[in-house]
Simulated scan of single mutants.
Amino acid sequence: MSAAAPKLFISYRREETAGHAGRLYDAVATRFGADNVFMDVELAPGIDFVERITRAVGDCHTLLVVIGPRWASVRAPDGGGLARLAEADDYVRLEVETALRRADVRVIPVLVAGAQMPQPEQLPESLRALARRNAIELSDGRWRFDVGRLVDALDDEAGDARPAPAPAPLRVPSGALLLIEGALVTACAALLAHRVAVSVTDALDLDRDPATVVRRALNWGLLAAAVAAWLRLRVGGRGSVAGAVALGALAGAAGGALDAVLWLWVMEPSAGALRDDVARVAVGLLLGGLLGALWSPPRVVFGALAGACAAFLAQALLNTVWALDPGASASDARDYTFVTLQAVAVVAAALALLLWLAARRAPVSRPPR
């Protein structure tokens, strides 16, 4: 096998091990790239599923067979009491059979949820060679460590030409900690970014409108760059920290400038609160989309939608506060207040949705496995 990243195929029984397979996918996709990992073959109507599975398995170097406690005994609802594996057209059986027939495909049983390797007599004749394969156990209690062993084994087979493994993706049980960290990092970054933006625009001595554009571009650009650097360091993923910072600065600056342009020149002042809502939602879209782009696997659309909704709700809250205390909107603290509140809301909402998707990763729709 060459030193290039190995192509992996994850075979699993959806009704039993979908959650474990999703976590495993996130880990190996982060290390080897989503393009090198297959999970769920999407079958359009009229497609020969045997040919499609044969081609997909043939394109990979390694088949990871995720085995739960009932992997060999799950029964079809209308199969007359037979185990799924006894059916010749069972997807999981076809995937494993195809891989076992190929000398160039390595088959690794992956035991989850306390499963044991099935005995040869529990398997169809065509699958009995699987019982002789050395398995690796992924325990829920030591998931990171066990997945690290598996990734190291795949690395050893691929060769030593690649750089050291990237940090493993965040485990979902640590989601609350991630949200708290994100809120604190965002609030601190907002404070520093605001002070820098004010100092720069004061030093440039710009007119009011250009100063507003520059200030908001700097404000959101610096804030987004800091959040992007934190997220890349915290959860890992593809790409460098410098690349994440550059992407964050670009997305934040674009969002801040768009915010100012919409507020100053596009929306009529008579639009009132609507003008604020539209401008801030634009920022929420870009900042949330940035977090989605840095996630593994990328979830740009989900991040952007969560960010836009959070920005709208945060702006609605600010509009209410300012309606109760009109003097607050005239103070210099207004910019820092809305940037901090909205940035924290956008980051928290986007991360919460991304964590939820990671915990409930829904495979591509296909017939029951």
Rank of each mutant, 00 (worst) to 15 (best):
A253R: 05
V66D: 02
R215Q: 10
L154N: 14
D259N: 15
E125N: 15
P77F: 02
A251S: 13
A56T: 14
E181R: 09
V261K: 04
V339Q: 11
M267V: 03
A86W: 12
I10C: 07
P169S: 13
V213R: 03
L351D: 13
P368I: 00
D140Q: 07
L150T: 11
P368T: 00
G19T: 11
A314T: 01
V241A: 00
R102D: 11
A88S: 13
V50I: 09
R93D: 09
G182S: 07
L324D: 15
V339P: 01
D259E: 09
L218E: 05
V278P: 00
P124E: 14
S73K: 09
V37Y: 14
R149P: 03
A225F: 02
P69D: 06
W263G: 04
L111P: 01
G303I: 05
R171N: 10
P367Q: 00
G292D: 12
R128T: 15
L294Y: 06
P363C: 06
L247R: 11
M117K: 11
A158T: 14
P367K: 00
D59Q: 15
R149Y: 07
L206I: 03
E125D: 15
S174I: 01
P118G: 11
N36C: 14
G292L: 10
V198Q: 10
L262C: 07
L178W: 14
A345S: 07
A358Q: 15
A3C: 10
E51L: 11
F312C: 01
G303K: 08
D26G: 11
T320W: 12
V185R: 01
L150P: 12
W263I: 00
A349F: 06
G255F: 06
A257T: 02
D160L: 08
R102F: 09
F49C: 00
A197I: 05
R232K: 12
A253K: 03
R361N: 13
A129H: 14
G272I: 03
D35S: 15
G248V: 04
A306E: 05
R23N: 04
V339M: 10
A56M: 12
R208F: 08
V107G: 08
Q116W: 11
A273D: 08
V281D: 02
V65N: 04
L192C: 09
T201A: 08
L290Y: 09
C188W: 02
I10D: 05
A343V: 02
R208E: 06
W230K: 01
P173A: 07
D205G: 08
L150H: 12
A253N: 04
L250V: 15
R101F: 05
R195Q: 07
A311P: 03
A224S: 10
R215F: 04
G81I: 07
S139L: 07
R133I: 04
G272S: 02
A362K: 12
A279E: 01
G182R: 10
G255A: 14
G292K: 12
